[in-house]
């Protein structure tokens, strides 16, 4: 049973993310009084990208695009096959670094600024996500993805909330969409990638999002498999909705603000939650 679930997860995780991004575009459109694209638009976009001519400014750039995708896929596999959460997290982090390095390798103002900002984004979300995972492992007693069988909704509510800035950064949403701000730096890190190479990075982002939503879904669990799956999906949709809402109601932060707010907000919430648990245990 678990093997089947793992394999299904492995294959359908990124597909589900494609669908989720379609939903995201629809919700965004509705919030802006538009109709929006079809639900499968992200898939059409991706397919079209891969049919385009291959053009790049140098080889290094392309190498890093491939590396980014492979690392994100590896991270997702570690997670979906029930492996170590922290290993998945760090491999995915290496994938993000590969994206920034690919952007660094081009002598373009927008790409360079984007890459610097990408690094600052890593500085903003990685500590939060890592700490959230550490606290999860602390409470469940293991870091294996397939052994997380406890619902943390009421135990770690504040820790779950810290996924909001993480998702905003990973989904390139305001107020944290610094590295890809299209109005300022014409998509930043992605500006020099075109056609199939851009497609690779899009796909890498899907795998990365699958991992982050996967982490989020670990916080809900129920003995009944179906309740478990429905609960996990609801949690994912709830956070998607909150992220989209934030995207449409906030303005982009500056670099320094992003690091400061994300870290104080994220680490602060987790600290409160952890202290509450410790105090309660002591009483």
């Amino acid at each position: 049973m678990t093997d089947v679930v793992s394999l299904l997860l492995l294959a359908f995780g990124p597909l589900a993310i494609g669908l989720l991004l379609g939903v995201d575009r629809r919700i965004t459109a509705r919030m802006q009084n538009r109709v929006g694209p079809p639900l499968l638009q992200p898939f059409y976009d991706l397919a079209k990208l891969f049919r385009k001519d291959r053009r790049s400014t140098n080889r290094t750039q392309v190498s890093f695009a491939v590396a980014a995708l492979l690392l994100q896929m590896a991270a997702w596999c570690v997670f979906a096959l029930g492996g170590d959460l922290l290993v998945a997290f760090f491999v995915s982090g290496a994938g993000s670094l590969a994206l920034a390095l690919g952007a660094f390798s081009v002598r373009s103002a927008y790409s360079q600024i984007g890459a610097q900002r990408e690094l600052l984004q890593m500085l903003s979300y990685e500590p939060i996500l890592l700490l959230a995972l550490l606290v999860l492992g602390w409470q469940s007693g293991t870091f294996m993805a397939d052994a997380q069988d406890e619902s943390m909704l009421f135990l770690l509510p504040l820790v779950i909330i810290t996924f909001v800035p993480v998702l905003a950064i990973k989904m390139q949403k305001s107020p944290f969409d610094l590295a890809t701000a299209h109005q300022e730096i014409v998509s930043g890190v992605y500006v020099e990638f075109a056609g199939p190479y851009y497609g690779l990075l899009k796909l890498a982002n899907w795998f990365e999002l699958a991992l982050v939503f996967g982490f989020l879904s670990l916080f809900f669990w129920d003995q009944n498999v179906y309740v478990s799956i429905v609960g996990k999906s609801l949690l994912a949709f709830l956070f998607l909705f909150v992220t989209v809402l934030l995207d449409n109601s906030t303005a982009r932060l500056t670099r320094e603000q992003m690091v400061k707010y994300a870290l104080t907000f994220g680490l602060g919430l987790i600290a409160v939650n952890v202290l509450a648990i410790i105090v309660e245990a002591a009483l």
């Binding site: 290094t60 670094l97 920034a100 660094f104 081009v106 002598r107 610097q116 890593m122 500085l123 890592l130």
Partner: peptide, 17 residues
């Protein structure tokens, strides 16, 4: 996180063509 960032920044400079 910052370890990745300061090494990444360094690698980035060496990569610029």
């Amino acid at each position: 996180a910052s370890m990745t960032v300061y090494y990444g920044k360094w690698l980035g400079r060496t990569l610029v063509d």
